[in-house]
Design a protein around this nucleic acid. Sequence first.
DNA 1: CTGAAAGCGCTTACAG
DNA 2: CTGAAAGCGCTTACAG
Lengths: 346, 346
Amino acid sequence: MKPGDRKPTINDVARLAGVSIKTVSRVINKEPNVRDEVRERVLRATTQLGYRPNFSARSLAGQRSYLVGYLFGDAGGDYAHRVEVGILDRCRAAGYHLLVEQIDAAAPDVAERTAALVTQLRLDGVVLTPPITDHADVLRVLREAGVPYVRIAPDRHDDVSPFVEIDDEAAAYELTTHLIGLGHRRIGFIKGDPGHAAARLRYDGFCRALREHGLELQPAFIGQGDFSYASGLAAARGLLLGGQRPSAVFAGNDDMAAAAIAVAHEAGLRVPAELSVVGFDDAPIAGVVWPPLTTVRQPIAQMAETATELLLTRADPKRGGEAGETPPRHRLAYEICLRRSTAPPA
Amino acid sequence: MKPGDRKPTINDVARLAGVSIKTVSRVINKEPNVRDEVRERVLRATTQLGYRPNFSARSLAGQRSYLVGYLFGDAGGDYAHRVEVGILDRCRAAGYHLLVEQIDAAAPDVAERTAALVTQLRLDGVVLTPPITDHADVLRVLREAGVPYVRIAPDRHDDVSPFVEIDDEAAAYELTTHLIGLGHRRIGFIKGDPGHAAARLRYDGFCRALREHGLELQPAFIGQGDFSYASGLAAARGLLLGGQRPSAVFAGNDDMAAAAIAVAHEAGLRVPAELSVVGFDDAPIAGVVWPPLTTVRQPIAQMAETATELLLTRADPKRGGEAGETPPRHRLAYEICLRRSTAPPA
DNA sequence: CTGAAAGCGCTTACAG
DNA sequence: CTGAAAGCGCTTACAG
């Protein structure tokens, strides 16, 4: 197509193929009831003209915009990006495009902005990640607007929408049990942002492991963070620089675990000889600190792909599920990554 | 808006305000030539009905889609995400939305996919980052389609489009000079991905600093990486585990610098006492390794904001520049971040 | 299996 | 300063 050429429309294709625009539409949308011979003629005309259907026209006339939305909050950049790549993979395969929006969960106009987004752009579906995934106003707006949505790692399971998650509690339980198996008896924990369900679930799993192995929870060994590296630094100092200190620390995510390792370095504690540290997420930082972190790998991209798949299944009227159905709930497998930040206590 | 309610259209607003839809259109688009009294009446009707203009209809009828595209390649997740957040900030302020697409620069259908994207969605503008920012086919397609685009950190400066960058060469020169000022004479360098302009420019600045200070470039101290942590590991081993080793290493980015620190740890070299390490980017990893990295801070979000601003200025026919103008070129300030990974040689 | 007509919700170009 | 008409490029609902 040279500059200045008008973009070919469905009318041009119809004329060239000697059929009506409705027939072209049928071929483009892979609808039935077109003779093979006609279909091929239309396809040929399409190729010859370099025809590409206009999304605005499609969206205005029809039921679908071929647009998926991704609403993300202030979660880590790495997490948000991996989710995005996962969504993009599925969108590309299905001929959809991705519209992204950053939403400040604490802003007063969240609901208004969400409403504007879905009514103005007629999104066919929306993918939600923490903390937006549990934002009641956002969920209500989407429900009322009739826009299908899928939640990744939600806290509340009583919503009508499908969701994708891993079992944070079980993973934390398993990782804690690993520490106990190594011989650790004084184990500390750095909690994550209370606004994220995962923070609570991971702590729950930790507590259950201690309880089931007859170990006591020592309040002095429990620190409060918010998933950030800086908060991990502060919390780790509280746990490690006191008189009594734990022989192992479980941090609610890898950033805080990396901070705990840094504090250990500062304090002259050798990791893992004098202090074992574990994290959660298998973020990039996990493989890059010294020593590399024992952690739990979340299949983030796969969760996003699964979520998008669920969404497109519902968004497509032809593939769509019944309104009354139980929403599909997907729990994906996590993986414990044993690396060099853990060892038996001295 | 309760479920089941039909979304209000421009017709509903016109009827309620007692004017024609053209007048409503004028008010919505802030066009002149509407009496204040009428404008207020329309605005009131808009609010009362909760009217929000339909983007598909706007795009189909008019010149603009209110959609900006962001095409990114396989650059680091953190970089891509920070760019995205910067773009989103400006889009939000201007009433635009962001459509993202991941493009594999090496794929054979890059041009075709780009063409499909811009002709089907009528993007008002596109932001490009490395390595796509220098992809000749992509640039050609955008130019031919008449879609304005802005390039972030481009290699080739002979394109007609505006761009935003920092002076990588000068920054690398400055940082190298800092090492020399500390007393280092044997300084190694780990090169980044040759496909990225920044890799070459940073190396150029390094070489110029050595030359201007009468130091010799020692081939044994030059390693080849690709910006990844793993490549930095391999390159650093080559530099540090040989017989002669440098007293300082300049890595082409922070990931590779972090890898160099890890190799130093492995080899029992104290950083910075026995080895100084510097990186580039001020990525999250820079503040999180031990010791924290001396590096160059790129104002990534600000670059993205500037790029988006340039784009929206050109995309808007009312604000737009002339076709023959020299494209605006923006060079933003970088910042040298001195941290604890550098010290005078032993 | 195929097509003619209407319409989606706006903006454009023009008339007054 | 305001509006009536046409049209953007498709899909829907229906007729044959």
